[in-house]
Structures are given as C-alpha cells and as structure tokens.
Design a protein around this nucleic acid. Sequence first.
DNA 1: CTTTGTGAAGTCCTTCACAGCC
DNA 2: GGCTGTGAAGGACTTCACAAAG
Lengths: 207, 207
Amino acid sequence: MRYYKIPNETIRRLPIYLRALLIVTQQGKKEISSQELADLLTVKSTQIRKDFSFFGDFGKRGVGYDIEELVMHIKKILRLRDVRKAALVGVGNLGSAVLAYPGFKMYGFDIAAAFDCDCNKVGRKVKDIIIEDASNIQALKKHKIDIGIIAVPKDAAQQTADALVKAGVKGILNFSPCYIDVPKSIKVITIDIATDLARLSYYMPAR
Amino acid sequence: MRYYKIPNETIRRLPIYLRALLIVTQQGKKEISSQELADLLTVKSTQIRKDFSFFGDFGKRGVGYDIEELVMHIKKILRLRDVRKAALVGVGNLGSAVLAYPGFKMYGFDIAAAFDCDCNKVGRKVKDIIIEDASNIQALKKHKIDIGIIAVPKDAAQQTADALVKAGVKGILNFSPCYIDVPKSIKVITIDIATDLARLSYYMPAR
DNA sequence: CTTTGTGAAGTCCTTCACAGCC
DNA sequence: GGCTGTGAAGGACTTCACAAAG
C-alpha cells in the first residue's frame, strides 16, 4: 500500500460504511466481504475495496474484512476514537431530539452541557445534564468542550455562534437554516434538511 | 446553450444555491452576480456559471442574474414548483421539530397529516393538524399525499415504511438511523446526522 | 469595464481487468 | 473457488482562459 492522499469522496463515504458496520456488528456478524457491504449500500464493491486500500491492506483474500478491525481503522481516520465533548445550545424540540439521539455516543461525542435562555427550562435536568442559562456559555471553557451544537431559532444563531467561539469551541454543528460567520479556523457544518428535501423531490416522479 | 445532461453534482448544489437566493431575496436583493453568490458559499464563481448554463442562459452580462427568475428555474429543475403533500409519522421531539421547521413550506412541502401510536397524543392539534392514530395511515391514500416522513424510534421504522408504501407514498424521508427496505420505485432519503458529525470530527483539529 | 457563457485543459474519482493470496 | 489489492483505462466534474455581450 502506498501513502496516497485519501480522496475527499472516500472521506465522505467512510461514515456511511461505519454506520453499516456498526449495524451489522449489532447483528453479531464478525467478518464481511466488500460485496456484502456493497449490497447494503448503493456503492460498488470495487469502490469499497479501493477506499479501504487507501488506509492499509487488512482484508483476508477469500474471506473478507474483520469488522472490528475495520471499524477501528475508520474511527482512527475520522478521528473518532477519542471522546469529544460537545455543548448543546437551545433545548427546544430540536435540541431535545438531539439530546435523545443515540448516534452521538456511537460516534464518540458526549454532550456534556446544555444551555437555553428560557428561565423555565434553566435548572431542569435532561439526561443527567442540568440546563444552564445561555448567558453562561463562556463557562464551558473550563470543561474542555470543543464542539458547539446550535439548535436555537435562526435569529439567535449568529449571536450563539459568537458566544461559542468566544468560549473556545473548535467546531460547530449548526441546525439553524442560515449562514453563520466565524473565524475560518473554526469548522462549521450546517445541517439543513431542506437540501435533502429538494433532492427527494428531484428524484421522485411527478404527481 | 446545448441540452447536455445535468451532472449529479450540479443537482446536489442547486438546493444550496436556492437557499442562498431565498435568503438574499428576503434581504430585498433583486439581482446577483455569480461572484457575489460564490462569496456566500464555498463554491467558485465559474462553477456557478457552469451550473446555471446547464439549464439556460438568462444572466445579463455586465450585471448578473435576476434572482426571481433564477429561483423559478431552480425550482422547476428540482420539481419544487407544485406543492407536495407530506404525512408525518411520529410526533415526538424530532417529529415536533419537523412540524415546526419553516423550510418545508419554503420548499413547497405541505405537511398535511400527522400520525402517532401514543393514545395520549392522538386527537391533539398541532399547527392545524389533528394527530391521528398510526393504524390509520392507509387513510392518507384519499388525501393525495405522496411523501412520508418517518420520525419514529428505529425499531418501528420498517413497519412504518411498509404502512406508508401501502398507503401509496412515492417518496420517504427517513430520520431513523437504520436502513429501510422498500420497492425500488419508491425513493428513500435517509437523514442521519451522524454522517455529518463524523465529517465535523475529521475536519476539526485534534484536541 | 464588468460579468456571462463555454470549449478546452486539467484534475479527480470510478470502474475495469486481472494478478496475488487464502 | 472466492475474495482482496491495484495499476491502468475510462469517465465525470472543475477550472482555465477568453470570446461575446450589456
């Protein structure tokens, strides 16, 4: 194996592979061939082998891949092996759904703090976390939290982002349907269902 | 302009352009150049012009594009011009967040029905919609609803999908972190934040 | 002078074809 | 026989460079 740069498209597929592998692990499977994995996803088996070849060759010819080893490698590439602490801002419906979502833990994220500006919510306990007042966001500097999750109404998104940046986060997951402006050393990922919705529409037959 | 096939990647970017255009429209802007749009997004201006050129040439040289016209064209390509009716299944935190999300309307989707299997919720009214019992999903056949939104716990996802297919939907938006099996004429889009999370992790500096 | 529209060149990614190994 | 690993070929998308138009 040569140490080529890993293509962006491969990085985009790794989480998809990871999810599938975690699901089949729960079903008790120990090994998987590129063909079996391909059947679960909409990807060709040669594509999968090529992708895996970028970070080592650990498949067994005639057999397939050891799932546990594969999961470990993918997590390493995606830097998911160490638990990363995240803070949630906005505990409305969306924020609550985020708190309840099991995927965070599965991917090595730990939501360690939650903030809201509604005094009725402040002090309430959700999943072992006490909701704090949003004006205390800067406090998370002490907690080694490096990810902020924005789940507030869009008019409050920018000021929330500013507060999070001030508090020292390095990455932001933004659920508000708007652009937010941050220093370019901060990585922002905006999740907007609308873009997926539009794709659903395109690929669906007309009524 | 020649009628080439529109590249997949262009289709993927169109919703992103659309969102940006809708945002600047709200700010009162009437025309925009490819460079201005590029500055808002992480895309090169030549890319934008090339993308737009696939579906006609309606830019004014020396000026830019008429935003209203552009929005109309993109909506046409993405088949978003006619309102599509959707049914939501599962009115928990996530489902409630979905109901409250303004993006649906903006993109021509109308959530016209909601279902849940919790009898405490059935009968309650949310945003002009009365929550119906999940066993009545087949009833939506009468309502010309062709999209189903799955926001139920993952163990109930497959049976919900089966019921929706039986009820005649043509597309499914799946928020459950699992694969669902449907006839291949049905388009399914699974939204799993975990994949975005993993990308956030990869592009963030190590702790 | 600004900005679009577009062939051509360049880059990146996917698929093929098959050698190598279990 | 079955499946991985990979150079090479092929295909898709992006960027360049510049002509054409307001």
